[in-house]
């Protein structure tokens, strides 16, 4: 079972290849197309990261992140959330690239297999950029009064952060 878990990535890839081959899909061509799209994604996220990375480094070097962590740590400790993830939780609903930058910073500093690193990864993976997505949908549909959409979406985000922290503590704490 353990070696099966370790082989997750090649197993997933191979099952997709097998399923596609059985349906007569040109497997190699599909992978190439995907890789090309992946390069486009990487190029598309780069400018935002170039703007936000210096800010994240500055926030950390100036001691502001530490101060924020210290201010929030009594609350976070009571809730069982690693305090390193405080900036990620604040930024996540507002900016996707900002959250990506902060999360990668936490993951590389605390270590990908540390509790804080895992919690940051799970938080990032199980949430979305709430305000951005809501703005795109509401403005495209021409809705002026979004009523309860944002409060309900923020409830979902809060639930996501807490459950990420608790599940990680349960599994790896």
């Amino acid at each position: 079972m353990k070696s099966l878990g370790a082989l997750t990535a090649p197993l997933l890839i191979c099952s997709a290849m097998l399923a596609a081959a059985l349906r007569g899909v040109d497997v190699y061509d599909a992978l190439l197309t995907g890789a090309r799209r992946g390069m486009k994604t990487a190029v598309e996220i780069l400018p935002a990261l170039l703007v936000l990375y210096p800010l994240i480094y500055l926030l950390r070097a100036s001691g502001l992140l530490e101060l924020l962590g210290q201010c929030l740590s009594p609350l976070l400790q009571a809730l069982g959330v690693p305090e390193e993830t405080a900036p990620l939780m604040l930024l996540r609903p507002i900016s996707g690239s900002g959250a990506l930058s902060v999360a990668s910073d936490i993951i590389s500093r605390a270590g990908p297999d540390s509790l804080a690193g895992r919690t940051a990864a799970v938080m990032l993976g199980s949430s979305e950029t709430t305000f951005y997505v809501a703005a795109v949908y509401l403005s495209a549909a021409g809705v002026k009064n979004s009523r309860w959409a944002i409060p309900a979406a923020l409830c979902a985000d809060l639930a996501c952060f807490l459950s990420s922290a608790w599940v990680c503590r349960l599994l790896w704490g």
Binding site: A16, R37, G38, M39, Y53, Y57
Partner: peptide, 27 residues
């Protein structure tokens, strides 16, 4: 330092993104 670190970070995850985009294309 931050601006410099952004480039290797994107490069380091680009490979993974490409690989999994390929799997999604297959699906």
């Amino acid at each position: 330092e931050g601006a410099q670190a952004a480039i290797p970070f994107v490069l380091s995850i680009a490979g993974g993104i490409c690989l999994w985009s390929g799997v999604l294309e297959l699906l």
